[in-house]
Amino acid sequence: MENFLNQMAELLEVDSVNPQDEIISFDAWDSLTSLSIIAMADDEYSVNISAQEILNAKTIIGLYQFIQSKK
């Protein structure tokens, strides 16, 4: 989880993120961030996720749990 929070903070271009933060609320959020998250899920967790699934997950913790459920 710690590692995931750091990865998300880097992709969202902030120093740190909280598990309850809404993913699309960050200034850096756009379709490139979405693709970068998809690539990170593939690289780090060997999981394929879609852009819609990121939106459905809503929060950082929601996305973390979704990725874990697909592993």
Partner: peptide, 11 residues
Amino acid sequence: KGDEVFNFVQT
């Protein structure tokens, strides 16, 4: 559909 194409290629 960029996400589908990306996942397709990498997989």
